[in-house]
Design a protein around this nucleic acid. Structure first.
Lengths: 146, 146
DNA sequence: GCTTCATGTAACTTCGTTTATTACGATTTA
DNA sequence: TAAATCGTAATAAACGAAGTTACATGAAGC
């Protein structure tokens, strides 16, 4: 089953933008995200709706981070993307009349809910600032090696 | 993103089979799982490979539970189905050269791994026997009400 | 104002995955 | 031998996500 990689993608984009003082165009972001500009605009548009980035048109326009890197967490990004469903497996029928189905769903739903809570909790603890620092640490180490 | 509901489906099937003393045909199971016989054979075939059910051909043939209900857990079923990937979201690129990508993946992977471990742990604690008992309790309550 | 660059967005196409269907072979029972 | 049932390959259909095209809107610079 194919995975939704938009969270990973926008993270990539945001970290690149964080290293940059000027706006980045959809075209530039598309290049570094291996996709095309329209998809970038669609996806980044969701972040803009959530107030995390701004966009400007015209020459010297593009996308800019609009929020404090310390304040934005992975969970914020997940929410901005519309809280896409986290699990690739799930119940066959969410509104069952069959009593067997009820028993099955009850067992599965509890487990999924707990796993989801754990994941969102972890997401809430990771800020963009931390990821950016993490990247810079790796970058420094990489330069030192070569 | 569409979810794989095979785990839920086979659970449904197995609980019905547990209420029954004779083999159930693919056709019967298909009816109660809202699908068709070939899909049932494909899916149940995986459980048979794992030794959880048996199939017999010819008249009076069909599918029978071959394992102890106390011993079979949701995790066993998940494994029998080929351990389909649990998450609907994930990294964009699993083998990245980009250092930004490395930092992003490291952050996401840890969280996903922990959530997966929690879920599988929960699965391992739920037996078919318990679900069957759960169903029978609901069933009794339902009959008492009417 | 005109041109250029960039986003905004609707419409459509393409692609990959999953499920359903068809068809037929193999096996078992009577 | 006839009927029932699974086994499985091959194909079709359905669906959603992503890519693409096309054009409108707005901003900057001359």
């Amino acid at each position: 089953m194919k995975r939704d990689s938009r969270l990973s993608s926008v993270l990539h984009a945001l970290l690149h933008m964080a290293e940059q003082n000027e706006p980045m165009t959809s075209e530039q972001l598309a290049a570094c995200m291996c996709t095309n500009p329209v998809v970038v605009r669609r996806t980044m548009g969701l972040l803009r709706d959530a107030g995390l980035v701004t966009s400007e048109r015209g020459p010297s326009g593009g996308w800019t981070i609009a929020a404090d890197l310390e304040a934005v967490t992975l969970r914020d990004l997940h929410e901005a993307l519309g809280e896409p469903s986290i699990f690739a497996i799930g119940n066959r029928n969410e509104n069952p009349g069959c009593l067997v189905e009820l028993a099955v769903n009850a067992a599965l739903d509890g487990a999924f809910a707990d796993a989801e809570a754990l994941l969102l909790d972890r997401f809430a603890k990771v800020t963009l600032a931390r990821l950016s620092a993490d990247f810079n640490r790796r970058h420094a180490a990489h330069r030192a090696r070569s």
